[in-house]
């Protein structure tokens, strides 16, 4: 009787573990940016300057972190089914690229070039520009 109980217990345990593994394996890739707490808030000018001055140091600080970045919209693009807001910096050809976390469709955004916005996203690093993914607009006075 005791052996039977133990067997049931083991089978149930294996079943639960298997289900958990399947659940973990199929967990969709998503970033809950809305509820994520930002590490810091910084201007587009400052974060770009920090990567240009010392990419290694800036990468160690910002890479993989949720950051709120504010600045003036230089360009809004829709390329390869991706909405991106480009924030200008003090360097002519170096910007902050914010890849918006939106459905794959051209979003009729009411934003305009020259407008000041605050965006929350995950900093991925630096190429020619500072790269942010999973971005969303944040309603703050900076959006005015």
């Amino acid at each position: 009787m005791k052996l039977k109980k133990t067997s049931y217990f083991l089978v149930t345990l294996v079943l639960i573990l298997s289900l958990y593994i399947v659940y973990l394996y199929n967990d969709p890739y998503k970033v809950n940016i809305r509820d994520a707490t930002e590490k810091t808030t910084i201007s587009a000018e400052e974060i770009t300057a920090s990567f240009i001055k010392n990419e290694k140091k800036a990468t160690a600080i910002y890479k993989g972190k949720v950051v709120k970045v504010y600045g003036i919209i230089k360009e809004i693009t829709f390329i390869n089914n991706t909405n991106t807001i480009i924030l200008q910096s003090n360097y002519t050809n170096f910007n902050v690229l914010c890849n918006l976390q939106l459905p794959t469709s051209k979003q009729p955004m009411s934003l305009k070039v020259g407008q000041k916005v605050t965006i929350k996203g995950v900093c991925k690093g630096f190429l020619h520009d500072v790269i942010f993914l999973n971005c969303m607009l944040v309603n703050t006075p900076n959006n005015e």
Binding site: D27, P28, Y29, K63, G64, K124, G125, L127, H128
Partner: peptide, 16 residues
């Protein structure tokens, strides 16, 4: 061409 390898987007978080 230059790309950040951590900027690839996957369907599943475990793949990432």
């Amino acid at each position: 061409i230059s790309m950040l390898m951590n900027a690839f987007i996957f369907k599943k978080s475990l793949m990432y």
